[in-house]
């Protein structure tokens, strides 16, 4: 039997919260099971009685109301051809809407191919894909080997050091501008460029990372952090029984050797 669906909140003093998630290009940028990230967000909201609304926005579509109303934006990874289509679309069709959303405090999580599009550009040999310009970084496709494997990083999002574990698989090397903060420090694996010892980027509520696997199932705590930030909550979310989540996190860390 599936888990009982939580009763809808009707009698609360404050209006019932709903997390509105805008999934960017979910039919194209989904190569490393990105829907697992969205599933974590959905279930962890539902189990707490928080509403969950998913707004998919595809190629050629203006962000429109999603840009004004969504609390959290998600973009995953895709094949080269699809990533190129999305890069152009992000830069030409959605750029202003995303900048406005982030400026009003919406959270954004970009994973792998999506992460590579957050900065100025992604150079692929002769070709250069535009970035959406949310953070100061650029990515260059390397002639060297793809950086593949289990990975663990140490991050501090303000509550002390914690670990994120996942899997990385990228040909691009991402270089952060001088004022930009990485998401974390590599414990095991390659990270942004295989050399700097840093992984991902974080500026306020914007997070970019190469960690897939997918990321949130292996690190349920980050799903909760995103939900809380996106909803503008300062107090921690109601705890859930995370026996399975903790075991999967430990297992993923062990796979990475951390």
């Amino acid at each position: 039997m599936s888990e009982p669906a939580p009763a809808p909140q009707t009698t609360v003093s404050e209006p019932a919260a709903t997390l509105r998630v805008c999934a960017l290009y979910p039919d194209l940028m989904n190569i490393y099971a990105d829907r697992g990230n969205l599933l974590l967000l959905r279930r962890r909201c539902e189990w707490r009685g928080i509403g969950f609304e998913l707004v998919p926005v595809g190629l050629g579509e203006e962000l429109g109301r999603a840009g004004e109303e969504c609390d959290l934006f998600y973009i995953g990874g895709g094949q080269d051809r699809d990533q190129k289509l999305c890069a152009l679309d992000l830069a030409q069709v959605k750029r202003d809407g995303i900048h406005a959303a982030v400026a009003r405090g919406a959270a954004l999580l970009a994973v792998c191919g999506g992460y590579q599009l957050l900065g100025h550009s992604y150079e692929l040999g002769e070709e250069t894909l535009p970035g959406v310009g949310l953070v100061d970084l650029e990515t260059v496709r390397s002639d060297g080997p793809r950086l593949i494997g289990n990975v663990a990083i140490e991050v501090d999002l303000g509550d002390g050091p914690r670990v994120l574990a996942g899997f990385e698989n990228h040909g691009g090397r991402t270089h952060l501008g001088p004022g930009e903060q990485p998401l974390g420090r590599v414990l095991r694996g390659h990270g942004n460029d295989g050399r700097s010892g840093f992984e991902g980027v974080r500026r306020g509520n914007v997070i970019g990372t190469y960690l897939h696997g997918p990321l949130l199932p292996k690190n349920a705590w980050l799903a909760d952090w995103l939900i809380a930030r996106a909803l503008g909550r300062d107090e921690p979310l109601e705890p859930l029984d995370d026996t399975f989540e903790s075991a999967a996190h430990v297992e993923a860390r062990r796979a990475a050797g951390a």
Binding site: M1, S2, E3, G36, L39, L40, R43, P217, K218, D241, T243, F244, E245, A247, A248, V250, E251, A252, A255
Partner: peptide, 23 residues
């Protein structure tokens, strides 16, 4: 398996009652 916990977690989020899952 080597990733038994990940699989159990997947099944939990797929809507399988955790009480039916053994790792």
């Amino acid at each position: 398996g080597t990733r038994a916990a990940e699989l159990a977690l997947r099944l939990k989020y797929a809507g399988v009652d955790p009480e039916r899952l053994v790792v």
